[in-house]
Structure formats: structure tokens, C-alpha cells
Amino acid sequence: PDLGLTQLFADPNLIENLKKNPKTSEMMKDPQLVAKLIGYKQNPQAIGQDLFTDPRLMTIMATLMGVDL
């Protein structure tokens, strides 16, 4: 199971919303991170391994779920 990750990354406004959010806007200036996020739309399971190697993803996930870290 993808634990709902498919829906989190399926939002067509995902990148724009993250660019507008004060907690994630600075991160979204990294083209490699943006490319990763776009890739998760097609393969949400890929985030599982990346969560352990890129701490920014935890902040992004929390933001998408509405959790304040």
C-alpha cells in the first residue's frame, strides 16, 4: 500500500502550492528536489527510500498533510 501518498502527490498544483508555502518555498528553488517531487506523481513508492536520505521530504510531507512540525 502507498499509505495515501498517491493522493498527496497527485495534486496538479503540488509544486506551485509548495512554492507559495513559507515552510517549503526555499526548498522549491532546488531543481533536483522539484524533479523528485514530479517523479513521485508517477511512482509514489519511490519516496519511501528518499525519506531516509533527504530530510526536506519529511517537511514537505508534513506540509502536504497539514501537520505543523
Rank of each mutant, 00 (worst) to 15 (best):
Q7A: 14
A35S: 10
Q49D: 11
P31K: 10
N17Y: 15
P55E: 08
Q7N: 11
M27F: 14
L57S: 01
D2T: 14
N21E: 04
V67D: 13
V67M: 15
P22R: 05
D11F: 02
L69T: 14
L69A: 13
Q49G: 10
D68F: 02
D2V: 15
G39R: 13
Q32H: 12
L64Y: 05
L8D: 02
K41P: 04
D11M: 04
L57D: 00
I38P: 00
A62S: 10
L37D: 00
A10D: 11
P12M: 06
L69F: 06
D30I: 02
N21M: 04
N17A: 11
N43D: 10
K36M: 12
I38M: 15
L3R: 09
G4I: 15
I38N: 12
T59R: 08
S25W: 05
Q7Y: 07
K23I: 12
R56D: 06
I47P: 04
P1S: 13
Y40C: 02
K19F: 08
Y40F: 11
T24A: 02
L8N: 03
K23D: 05
T6N: 12
V67K: 11
K20C: 07
L69H: 14
Q32E: 13
A35C: 06
V34P: 01
Q45L: 13
L51R: 05
L5M: 12
N21W: 06
P44L: 09
L64N: 01
L18A: 02
K29F: 04
T63V: 15
P12E: 09
L3N: 12
L33V: 04
K41Q: 15
D2P: 14
M61H: 04
I47T: 04
L18K: 00
I15K: 00
T59A: 10
L5V: 10
Y40M: 07
Q7M: 13
Q42M: 12
Q7V: 11
Q32N: 11
P1L: 12
K19V: 08
D54A: 01
N17Q: 09
D50N: 05
D11I: 04
P12L: 05
D11T: 04
V67F: 14
K36N: 04
D68R: 02
P31Q: 11
D54F: 02
T24P: 00
T24E: 00
L51T: 06
K23E: 07
I15Q: 01
D11L: 03
D50F: 04
L8M: 10
G4H: 12
M61Y: 14
M28S: 01
Q32M: 14
V34W: 03
G48R: 15
I15S: 01
M28T: 02
K41F: 11
Y40W: 08
L64A: 04
G66M: 08
A10Y: 06
K19W: 05
E16I: 07
L5S: 06
R56I: 07
Q45C: 10
L37Y: 00
A46H: 09
Q42I: 10
Q32L: 14
K29S: 09
D68G: 03
G66C: 08
L37Q: 00
P55T: 10
G48K: 14
E16T: 08
Y40V: 03
R56V: 06
G4C: 11
T59K: 09
K41W: 11
L18V: 01
K20L: 11
T24C: 04
K41E: 05
L18E: 00
R56G: 03
A62K: 12
I60N: 00
L33C: 02
L33S: 00
S25L: 08
G66R: 05
L57T: 02
Q42V: 11
G48Q: 15
D68Q: 03
L33R: 00
I38E: 13
D30P: 00
N21T: 03
E26N: 09
R56S: 04
P12R: 05
K19E: 08
K19L: 11
A10Q: 14
P1E: 11
A46M: 13
D30Q: 02
G66Y: 07
E26V: 07
L57N: 01
N43V: 03
D2Y: 03
T59P: 02
P12I: 06
Y40L: 09
Y40T: 01
P55M: 08
L69I: 15
T53N: 12
Q32I: 13
K23A: 13
S25M: 12
K23C: 07
F52S: 09
Q7R: 09
P1G: 12
P44F: 06
P44Y: 04
L37E: 00
P55Y: 09
A62T: 12
T63W: 11
K29L: 10
D30R: 01
N13E: 09
D54C: 03
L14G: 02
N43I: 03
N21I: 04
T6M: 14
D54Q: 01
L18H: 00
T24Y: 03
L57A: 02
P1N: 11
L3V: 13
K36P: 00
Q7W: 07
S25A: 14
M65D: 03
L37W: 01
N17L: 12
M61A: 12
L69C: 10
